[in-house]
Amino acid sequence: MSVVRPVTLVTGAAGGIGAALARRLASSHDLILSGRNVGTLEALCAEVGGSALVLDLTRPDSFESALAGVGRVSNVVHNAGVVELGAVAEQGHAVWSHTLAVNVVAPAELTRLLLPRVRAERGSVVFVNSGAGLRANAGWGSYAASKFGLKALADALREEEAGAGVRVSSVYPGRTATPMQEKVRSQEGAAYTPEAFIDPDSVAATIEFVLNAPRDATLPDVSVRPGPR
């Protein structure tokens, strides 16, 4: 008797946490991988056996047509995100609009469109948030606001979909050795030393655990912080 494998869609899959997660799930999940760098994404799909899904996260109106050919979806992992540091007094509306569009509006619309599929599978929606989704520091206003908004989206969705058997989790990684962190360190005027931060695979292992948790348990909020060195 063949086992029906879950189908897991991961955004921001071309690198960092998303790519690490794809490699972890490849042996037990069928994967739909979304990312911005098409060449890198296609190479990863060839490696792990997944299929590529090209989405422009600034154009949520394009999602419905992009998803037209997608079949089953058991789980959705919202991992894509953008960050632009700056004081509230210095950042114009374009930065705020772009950050909120990619980090909040896109996950909300993608979730809305995929919910019928996820409900049918009694699957999970995982939002990869940030420590900035729990506390806003100086210079992080636009990013933190988007991550606070992402937490609100997850919290509301969890209550709304519990009766349909859909599990909703937020994962809050601390600083992780990813290309985004390299950009942040550059914006902070500091050196990027990957070994000083959480390994992306450690965050991916946490997400894998959340997805594969026994059905009688749900993990609403999981924080991942650097361990002792």
Rank of each mutant, 00 (worst) to 15 (best):
L100M: 12
A177V: 09
Q187H: 08
A101W: 07
A80W: 07
F148T: 03
G50T: 00
R225S: 14
A66V: 07
R158T: 15
V166M: 01
G131C: 04
L25N: 00
P116E: 10
R24E: 13
V10A: 08
E195R: 14
R185C: 12
V118S: 10
W96I: 03
W96G: 02
D216L: 10
H29P: 01
D221N: 09
A190D: 14
N137Q: 15
E195Q: 14
A132F: 13
G15D: 15
L114F: 04
E64F: 01
S146M: 06
E160V: 02
D56G: 00
V82A: 02
V73P: 02
I207M: 10
S186G: 15
E42I: 04
V203Y: 08
F148P: 00
R23C: 07
N137F: 15
R185V: 09
T99R: 05
E208K: 11
V128D: 06
R215A: 15
V210E: 02
A190S: 12
T8M: 08
R5Y: 09
H78L: 02
A20F: 03
A177R: 05
L55H: 02
I207D: 08
N75C: 01
N75P: 07
L211Y: 06
G163E: 11
D201R: 09
R72F: 02
L211E: 06
L53A: 00
G16P: 06
H29C: 09
T111Y: 09
L57V: 06
P226C: 04
L41C: 01
H98C: 11
R112K: 12
T218W: 11
V224D: 05
T11A: 01
N137L: 15
D201H: 13
M1C: 12
P107K: 01
E84P: 04
D61G: 08
E195D: 14
L55W: 04
G139S: 00
R122W: 05
Y172M: 05
L219Y: 14
Q91H: 02
T8F: 00
